[in-house]
Design a protein around this nucleic acid. Structure first.
Lengths: 348, 348
DNA sequence: CTGAAAGCGCTTACAG
DNA sequence: CTGAAAGCGCTTACAG
């Protein structure tokens, strides 16, 4: 005989509710599913009983029996980088508000076996999918999702048509990169160098936007530096760039890279922005508090995530629904300014 | 007649495998569950058939039928702050390796209704739980989990006994705070100020460690500054501290706060570390690349997360299993040094 | 508007 | 070592 008497009581089921309310469990099912054909008075009786007994429908049973989808799993290559983490947070918020359970599955690489396995597992969970297709792994995963599984993709810039009819929502990072580049050019810089994050295809969209803005201004784009996601690779790229006095403006694929470049410039004795301007991408919480504070492009990944879930949810009723993502905005801070004065340079 | 013929084929079930292999579905169940009493040859036959048919057991059905737990849900107040995100990543990694599905549920506040609801939902998912109890919401959630649900908690410093018999793993942040404080004192600072993150109880452990180190050195602790989690509140605290020339050493509850303090010191014209030393907590990826680089305490949240999952997993076989968390390490960088010279100050 | 049936895909005992 | 049964908690049709 136990002292505390704590027992893992079997959860109350639909039948318990039915018995307590004096109806068939059938009717209880109708009530919890918002079925219209239930007399108002019996509905209220059932609802009260549910409340009183603390009944919670068993998700596994509902899923098994073919009930409506009430869970999403987020397929992603990463959960800690700013954009990914913020998107995940947005998705979770929206999903929770809609009473959806949320699962996550990360793909450690873009190896096709690993991607396929991740997709399989995510699909077998029986719910809907949101794939964060910001990178090669995500892009591959998106195309690997079999038709028939409710899916929406978060992408940065759409390329081509929707993937196999899977809807997506995006933030136009290509246009944003072009805007940032044009801004630096207007400041008087002769050219703008680019430190790139890893990209899904040969046509990385931030890189494309940067290149196009240069071309539009009649400037031959310099060779971009291919970096990773983290500050260290920005730092390494920055060391290379710092040596060249002709480098007066650097656009970076994300704020972490930009901070790495800032550090390298500092070590090389190149003042920012007097000797060189540095612009990031994302507007992470730290961007505003750097020394110098970082000019960057604010990308609202949280809103992107919420929009993805909203679209997924809408599509369950209306398969033609569409959503537009949030617009990027250039935030000007201390890390950018006119180039060092030189013959013919505009004076501010 | 469709052109592509893409059909959402019904997933292959245990019965399909049984039929194809010429055994009962019963036997297939034994094989996929690693049951010992199956003849080696029939096991291989079944395994081959499973592989050939691409069979994947349905998780919902297994859960419903009372099979072993194969999912964890992470209950947390946050998913984007460094420690939380890193712990989540560690959990996901370990869970994925063990073929567990992972769910996440965030608690927006520590309101008891919200916490109770979060716990209910997490529990009804039918899997195990890992609660990130770094804050008031997490701490409350931990105590609200009903007995009988496999649960482990990640905490920063253990206070009292395990919560209701729920095992936990921790990183000793109290000792780490004491170590960092002692380090600053050894550098010659007369005292150390503390900018605090929000804390679960009156006895915030980082704060306790800091205070104790001061007391041990015979120094009366100054009033701590209560801040939030983000750089902005560190910045605001920093502005206050910068005004007082007697402030020569500041310990911060996390790196984001430290960066905010650094920014405030910069604006106030107080050189770091010549005029004031600043030490953070966490060792985020950016800490090394700040200007100045940040002295901080490395807390391995990824390992903490992996250890939590490992403990959960072990406990399913051995309910007495325990795990120790990773040890914090003080990382000395540019943001800390001896105090400005003054009468009697030690010369380095 | 409401009830009785069949079944989702699996798992535990129970039998041999 | 392997098979036939009952049931997990729900949901869709099917009947009235």
């Amino acid at each position: 005989m136990g002292v505390t008497g704590h027992t893992t009581a079997r959860a109350v089921s639909i039948r318990n509710v039915a018995a307590a309310a004096g109806v068939s469990y059938q009717t209880v099912s109708r009530v919890i599913n918002g079925h219209p054909s239930v007399k108002a008075s019996t509905r209220e009786l059932v609802l009260a009983t549910i409340d009183q007994l603390g009944f919670r429908p068993n998700r596994a049973a509902r899923a098994l029996a073919g009930g409506p989808i009430q869970s999403v799993t987020v397929l992603t290559a990463n959960t800690t980088l700013y954009g990914y983490a913020a998107a995940l947070r947005g998705i979770e918020e929206a999903a929770r508000a809609a009473d959806f359970a949320v699962g996550i599955r990360v793909m450690e690489s873009d190896d096709s076996d690993e991607v396929a396995d991740a997709v399989d597992r995510a699909v077998e969970s029986g719910g809907a999918l949101i794939v964060l297709a910001f990178d090669p792994a995500g892009t591959r995963a998106l195309t690997a999702v079999p038709p028939g599984v409710p899916t929406v993709a978060a992408v940065e810039t759409p390329v081509g048509a929707e993937a196999d009819g899977k809807p997506w929502v995006w933030i136009n990072d290509r246009a944003a990169a072009a805007e940032a580049t044009a801004y630096l050019l207007e400041l008087g810089h002769r050219t703008v160098h680019y430190v790139s994050i890893p990209s899904p295809t040969q046509t990385a969209q931030r890189l494309v936007g940067w290149r196009q803005a240069l071309l539009d201004a009649g400037v031959e784009p310099p060779e971009p530096l291919l970096a990773g996601w983290h500050p260290r690779s920005g730092y390494e790229s920055g060391r290379l760039l710092a040596r060249d006095p002709d480098v007066t403006a650097v656009l970076c694929g994300n704020d972490d890279l930009a901070f790495g470049v800032l550090r390298a410039m500092h070590e090389a004795g190149r003042a920012v922005p007097d000797s060189v301007s540095v612009v990031g991408f994302d507007d992470t919480p730290l961007a505003e508090f750097g020394t110098p504070s970082l000019t960057t492009i604010r990308l609202d990944f949280g809103e992107l995530g919420r929009a993805c879930f909203a679209l997924l949810h809408e599509r369950m009723r209306d398969p033609t629904a569409v959503r537009t993502g949030p617009a990027p905005v250039l935030v000007r801070r201390e890390s950018s300014g006119p180039p060092p004065s030189r013959p013919g340079a505009a004076v501010r």
